[in-house]
């Protein structure tokens, strides 16, 4: 502590910065911004061609998420778009808010764990809905093995459960580390010369990070969903059929 205080490192300041439960004010702000955007976007929905900017952005967002689900999960992945839309808008709005305001819900690990819990639980819920409870549990035990190899299946089961928990940690930590790390770097740069916001130079790359983190969370959710909702052996043939047109298309 002495050393940190002697050097007057902003790292310590950032660590001591206490927002506490006021963070939910910022959560509400994210909520409000998204709702305002949705209201603006809904104005133009009646037109045959979407001309206003918010509506076009919303359309592009929808098409982007739909394309992602179709790419990663397959043609039946469109039903997961609502959840992904909620995740994406919340994270992206939070991240962008973090560029301008002093605190944001996505830069707080406690809140990110909450979102990760919902994501993982949602993936499990969809897996159970797609395969049934027994089929979903079977998913965890890897390929079918006979005889004494059942022990290996048990081992795989434990490993898979641990990896599910790691999903929780990795999802939340990734977002927290990227956003909060960016804030720390920015405040550190700002404090090199007092009164000159050098950290502002980082804004473009931080904006890019905001976009990437929202994208990463959604595409990881898609990947988890595609693993959880695949039907094991039956699905392999369907998958082949599904991939064949794409292959022929690529060759053509």
């Amino acid at each position: 502590m002495d050393l940190l205080q002697q050097l007057n490192l902003p790292l310590a300041e950032a660590a001591e910065k206490e927002i506490g439960w006021n963070i939910f004010f910022y959560s509400g702000l994210v909520f409000a911004i998204v709702l305002v955007f949705a209201t603006l976007a809904k104005k133009d929905l009646k037109n045959r061609v979407f001309t206003s900017l918010p509506t076009r952005l919303a359309e592009h967002l929808y098409l982007f998420l739909e394309g992602m689900t179709v790419n990663v999960i397959g043609p039946n992945g469109k039903k997961y778009v609502p959840f992904l839309l909620a995740i994406w808008t919340f994270i992206f709005t939070g991240n962008i808010m973090g560029l301008l305001l002093q605190a944001t819900p996505t830069a707080d690990w406690s809140l990110n764990i909450g979102m990760a819990v919902i994501t993982v639980v949602y993936v499990q819920y969809e897996g159970i809905k797609a395969n049934g409870l027994l089929g979903h549990i079977k998913h965890f035990s890897g390929p079918k093995l006979g005889g004494f190899m059942i022990l290996v299946s048990g081992l795989i089961f434990v490993v898979e459960i641990v990896s599910e928990c790691m999903k929780l940690v990795s999802l939340s930590l990734r977002l927290y580390g990227n956003i909060e790390g960016g804030h720390i770097v920015r405040s550190s740069l700002d404090s090199i010369i007092a009164g000159v916001p050098i950290g502002g130079l980082l804004l473009p790359i931080k904006f890019f990070t905001c976009l990437i983190q929202a994208f990463v969370w959604t595409i990881l959710t898609c990947t988890y969903l595609s693993i959880a909702t695949s039907h094991g052996h039956d699905d392999e043939h369907e998958g082949d059929h599904g991939h064949q047109p794409a292959l022929t298309e690529a060759h053509a």
């Binding site: 709702l35 909620a86 919340f90 406690s110 809140l111």
Partner: peptide, 17 residues
């Protein structure tokens, strides 16, 4: 905070939907 944020997000999903 985690539990509260779970609640906030559970509200957020259906509202956005």
């Amino acid at each position: 905070k985690t539990i509260t944020n779970i609640g906030v997000f559970l509200l957020f999903i259906p509202v956005i939907n």
